[in-house]
Amino acid sequence: MDIKRENILHLASLSEFSLSEAEINKLGEDLKDIIKYISQLDQLKTDNVEPTYQVFEMENIWRNDEIIPQDAEREMLLALTKEEQDHQIKVPKVL
C-alpha cells in the first residue's frame, strides 16, 4: 500500500512524537518497505483459525484483597523525577 506524507505525520502524532523533515523522508521509505514485507501474510490462509494473543497457559490467579507492601517508598519514587514540589511532581501548565 502507498504510504503518504500525511500518513507518516498521523502515525507520528499517534505515537506522541514529532519528526524532522529528514526523518519524515527516511521513515516514510522504511515504513513502506516494512509494510510491503509484512503484507506477505495476505498469502496465508487463516479461514476458521482462532487468533492467539498470548502463550502463557493463563488461568485466573486470585489473591486476597489485601494491601501488599511495595518495593519502593513514595519518597524514592518522587526522587526520580526532575522537579518536585510539596510531594508532587511538577510539570508545565496543562491548559
Binding site: 502515525l11 505515537s15 514529532s18
Partner: peptide, 23 residues
C-alpha cells in the same frame, strides 16, 4: 513536554517500531 521528550529520547528504530505498531 511529551512531544519533545519522546522526539529527542527515542532512537530511530524505536520510532519505526512504535509507528508500525500504531499502524
Amino acid at each position: 513536554l511529551y512531544d519533545h521528550t519522546r522526539s529527542e529520547g527515542f532512537m530511530p528504530e524505536n520510532k519505526r517500531r512504535i509507528m508500525i505498531g500504531n499502524f
